[in-house]
Design a binder for these strands. Structure first.
Lengths: 138, 138
DNA sequence: CATCTTGTTGAGACCGAGTATCATCCGACG
DNA sequence: CGTCGGATGATACTCGGTCTCAACAAGATG
């Protein structure tokens, strides 16, 4: 499995100790997490990592496609580790906050048609679904 | 045309002077705007409106469906006045920031199918397109 | 292995969006 | 016109995120 550390290694950046630790931490996240989550975890460790570094590394990981930022309905930002680099979307559970990847969702989205109708040259899109996940429905 | 003031009037809230002024201001916005935009406009007027009131009124307008909040790719929040109450989505120009409503976009989105595949009970969704608008392409 | 260069780190100040508090005020309604 | 509960606004505060800058270490080079 291509984990976050490996992927960082392949980027043209230095593989420093804080980055390695943060990447490993991200890999271990079961669901979505916020920058604050990482911060509080890391601050309790024997050798804390600076606030700025956490944000910087998160930005780096996002640029490398290791994590993706999603906008929760309440307005704040969370990150999810994205296994493959492939294009996909997310479903967010409004109850427990869990996020599920939906790899092959594009099916109905005809980008060419959208471009025509909107007059935009569409470069990217984001689809977010909100609802109750299987567990919370029970 | 049902303007923001009218719609506020129909809600079960008090039609106070600051709200009226803000609603009128929102109506006059040509494109998307941030809370800060409103604030700076309003602070220059002869009788300024308090910071808190601007945010409160914006939340009220959003609850009434008069404006909708969109999340820009850079992470900050903007608002757009939404003419009708109907469900629609937005295209955001990555160059000039303009936002265009796309009223009948759902076409390809089969919610029932999505529910089945994701296990989620889908309650809402959001589609945001990013690209260059017709003007910026020239 | 020693050295050098350049990217990275971390402490802390800073910034800006948004919220909480609370005394005052005023819109709606009787 | 008087009342009263919702709305206002000044201000303090929180919190996510950025900036700055001196100290540091990764990795290249000899």
């Amino acid at each position: 499995m291509t984990n976050a550390v490996d992927r960082l290694n392949q980027a043209g950046t230095r593989l420093t100790e804080p980055r390695r630790r943060l990447a490993r931490l991200v890999d271990r996240q079961p669901g979505p997490f916020t920058a604050a989550d990482l911060l509080s975890t890391v601050e309790q460790e024997s050798r804390p990592i600076g606030r700025a570094t956490v944000f910087r590394t998160l930005a780096l990981l996002e640029a490398e496609g290791v994590v993706e930022r999603i906008d929760l309905p309440n307005g704040d930002h969370a990150y999810v580790a994205c296994a493959g680099g492939r294009h996909h979307h997310h479903a967010v559970c409004v109850e427990c906050g869990r996020v599920t990847d939906l790899p092959d969702l594009d099916v109905g989205l005809d980008v060419a048609e959208l471009s025509r109708r909107s007059g935009y040259e569409i470069q990217a899109h984001r689809i977010e679904l909100f609802g109750r996940c299987a567990d919370c429905r029970r």
